[in-house]
Design a protein around this nucleic acid. Structure first.
Lengths: 141, 141
DNA sequence: ATCGCAAATGAGAACGATTATCATTTGCAT
DNA sequence: ATGCAAATGATAATCGTTCTCATTTGCGAT
């Protein structure tokens, strides 16, 4: 159990709701979750935290660098554990599943494009929306 | 004046609010606008259309292919004239200005990445958030 | 021209995601 | 154990957007 240290290192005191949210992400059963997802999963497992707290904790974790926030189409933002290595996303339009990828060539070209125009990249988001052509696509999360 | 034909071709009857919204985009003074932006600009120029109508018209124009909708960070969506040629965006974090770019290499790699994973791309969005290093950055829209 | 009616509009209610408020509770240094 | 700043939870408020519905309008048929 090393979550308390994660929180300490992030300058956050270790409280019950924070530990619950963090371990939900660390359980790995669901990598990308919205605030609502987290709230419902916690309720379902008997832990009752307030929805407002979930939102607060997610935002704090994002600022602390423990989680990364993504804005996909559809308005709601989703979070995932920050594992240091940047990556982009392919979102399956059939089932909503999210796959991650990293392409060196794309990353390099982006730097070039920005530099050519006099920009210095702070962040970027590449979201590919696609249909999964493989049969194993669940077609439902 | 060819807006009425644009609407006709799109299967939309030409009404006053639709013509106003379309000509605002065609005026070219502001390429990327949110629903709120459009609403305020129309009010400012004395044309009064309802906010609900602006939202409806923008959505119809998007479906008709006259406009393209983008979901940038921050929740609200912005629209721009569809000029046929796809492009991606660099958003200046200082002034909010949006620059467009198109990079063949990036487009090609995306196809490859998706194909390798068994996806067929329906759409994609690449948003680079950056600081403008040039002095001409307005630092305010 | 003008009539008639389906389609479009506008005002405001409703909605979903998120944030703010504030009284109560809790972690933790003393 | 104690005290207090920080965190929580219930709820109200906010923001962007969509829905509802009574009124108006475009436009094809007369």
């Amino acid at each position: 159990m090393h979550q308390p240290e994660h929180l300490k290192n992030a300058g956050l005191k270790s409280t019950v709701p924070r530990l619950k949210v963090l371990s939900l992400f660390e359980s790995g059963q669901e990598r990308h979750m919205s605030a609502e997802d987290v709230y419902k999963l916690l309720l379902a497992s008997g832990d009752d935290v307030g929805l407002a707290t979930v939102y607060r904790v997610l935002t704090q974790f994002e600022q602390a660098g423990l989680l990364v926030r993504h804005y996909f189409e559809g308005g709601k933002s989703v979070f995932e554990l920050n594992q240091g290595k940047h990556h982009d996303h392919i979102v399956c339009l059939q089932c909503g599943r999210v796959e991650e990828f990293y392409d060196t060539a794309i990353e390099a070209r982006q730097e070039k494009v920005a530099a050519d125009r006099g920009f210095s990249i702070r962040d970027h988001a590449l979201h590919i929306y696609a249909d999964c052509t493989k049969k194993q696509c669940p077609h439902k999360v």
